[in-house]
Computed example of a mutant assay.
Amino acid sequence: MTNTQVTVLGLGAMGKALAATFLTGGVSATVWNRTAGRDAELVAAGAVGAGSVAEAIDNGEVIIAVLLDHASVHQTLDPVVSQLRGKRLINLTSTAPEESRELARWADEHGIEFLDGGIMAVPSMIGTPASSILYSGDKALFEAHRATLELLGTAEFLGDDPGLAALYDFSLLSGMYMMFAGFFHGAAMMSSAGVSAQEFAQRAVPWVTAMAQGFPGYAGAIDSRDYSAEVQHLEFQQAAVNAIVRASRDAGVATDLIAPIAELIDRQIRAGHGAAAFARTIEELR
């Protein structure tokens, strides 16, 4: 149990999960949401329901924003910025790295301590060992409330750059979305033969899990920019991916997802890198 007075702004699925976990951990929590009524279950569990943002901020030492986006953070907090002076603001809203940096500058201008975070979990994982939240910005703020933050999951401080946690968050999420999209594409292909998504998933999970073990090898090539390849060079990959494109069309599946990968490979080959490893396609991205 900690003595921190926490205010949670935003009671979507994630905000509710955070507030509920604080209450379970013995933390005094005030909650607010733009739409009235979403706090009923939390209030019944012991939270203080605030009727306004101003009231919610007055009740909290640490203000945690879990809102829709960057614009909503300003829409919610700009009108009460004078009340935030001397408070500690932790932004767990999904804001892009430059937006997190802008919020840090805004907070500094108004005498507000600021920490940004990226939640690497879905709401049901909050408060379990599977939950991880990345933080960056004000290290003193992080250390002062680390015990409270660790109620939510593993808390890791990445550095003083307030945009770094968001950069990690969005970079990891990009891999997640592309992984799921790849599964959707494969499931669409298999459906042309009457194979259910459930049946396909039974093969996809072990396959994708095994392939993920290749990340460190790719990382070494990317960091060293040594893209030499003894086997499966880009010209080999081109033939394979083009075959997937043809198979997709034959199955009546749109190529919106796979065609851009083929184009990355094609551009590298046109530039004279056909003998290089697949990892060299990163040079088309950065």
Rank of each mutant, 00 (worst) to 15 (best):
residue 4 T to D: 10
residue 8 V to R: 09
residue 9 L to I: 06
residue 12 G to P: 00
residue 17 A to Y: 00
residue 19 A to K: 03
residue 21 T to Q: 05
residue 21 T to R: 11
residue 22 F to Q: 00
residue 23 L to Y: 02
residue 24 T to C: 02
residue 25 G to H: 00
residue 31 V to D: 01
residue 34 R to H: 02
residue 35 T to G: 08
residue 41 E to D: 09
residue 43 V to S: 02
residue 45 A to E: 05
residue 46 G to H: 01
residue 47 A to Q: 11
residue 48 V to P: 00
residue 48 V to I: 09
residue 53 V to S: 07
residue 54 A to R: 03
residue 59 N to S: 11
residue 66 V to I: 12
residue 67 L to S: 04
residue 68 L to P: 07
residue 71 A to H: 14
residue 71 A to G: 09
residue 74 H to D: 12
residue 74 H to A: 13
residue 75 Q to G: 06
residue 75 Q to H: 02
residue 79 P to L: 08
residue 80 V to N: 12
residue 81 V to L: 11
residue 82 S to D: 15
residue 82 S to W: 10
residue 84 L to G: 03
residue 86 G to K: 15
residue 87 K to D: 12
residue 87 K to C: 11
residue 87 K to N: 14
residue 88 R to M: 08
residue 89 L to T: 09
residue 100 S to M: 13
residue 104 A to G: 15
residue 105 R to E: 11
residue 109 E to G: 15
residue 111 G to D: 06
residue 111 G to M: 00
residue 112 I to G: 10
residue 113 E to H: 07
residue 114 F to E: 10
residue 116 D to S: 07
residue 123 P to L: 02
residue 125 M to E: 03
residue 125 M to C: 05
residue 126 I to M: 07
residue 131 S to Y: 04
residue 132 S to C: 08
residue 136 S to E: 00
residue 137 G to F: 02
residue 137 G to E: 01
residue 137 G to M: 04
residue 138 D to R: 00
residue 146 R to A: 04
residue 148 T to Y: 06
residue 148 T to Q: 02
residue 149 L to G: 00
residue 149 L to I: 03
residue 149 L to A: 01
residue 155 A to N: 05
residue 158 L to S: 01
residue 159 G to F: 02
residue 160 D to S: 14
residue 160 D to N: 13
residue 165 A to W: 08
residue 169 D to W: 04
residue 169 D to F: 08
residue 170 F to S: 13
residue 171 S to N: 07
residue 174 S to Q: 09
residue 176 M to V: 13
residue 178 M to D: 11
residue 179 M to D: 11
residue 183 F to M: 10
residue 186 G to F: 03
residue 187 A to Y: 05
residue 188 A to R: 14
residue 189 M to K: 04
residue 189 M to C: 08
residue 192 S to Y: 06
residue 192 S to G: 10
residue 193 A to L: 11
residue 198 Q to K: 09
residue 198 Q to R: 06
residue 199 E to K: 15
residue 203 R to W: 13
residue 207 W to S: 13
residue 207 W to K: 08
residue 208 V to Q: 04
residue 213 Q to Y: 07
residue 214 G to E: 00
residue 215 F to P: 09
residue 222 I to Y: 03
residue 223 D to A: 14
residue 228 S to D: 05
residue 229 A to S: 14
residue 230 E to L: 15
residue 231 V to S: 13
residue 247 A to I: 04
residue 250 D to A: 08
residue 250 D to K: 06
residue 254 A to E: 12
residue 254 A to R: 09
residue 255 T to F: 03
residue 256 D to G: 14
residue 259 A to D: 14
residue 260 P to V: 15
residue 265 I to S: 01
residue 266 D to T: 12
residue 268 Q to P: 13
residue 270 R to I: 00
residue 270 R to D: 15
residue 271 A to C: 07
residue 275 A to K: 12
residue 277 A to F: 15
residue 278 F to G: 12
residue 279 A to T: 05
residue 280 R to W: 06
residue 283 E to D: 15
residue 283 E to I: 15
residue 284 E to S: 06
residue 285 L to R: 08
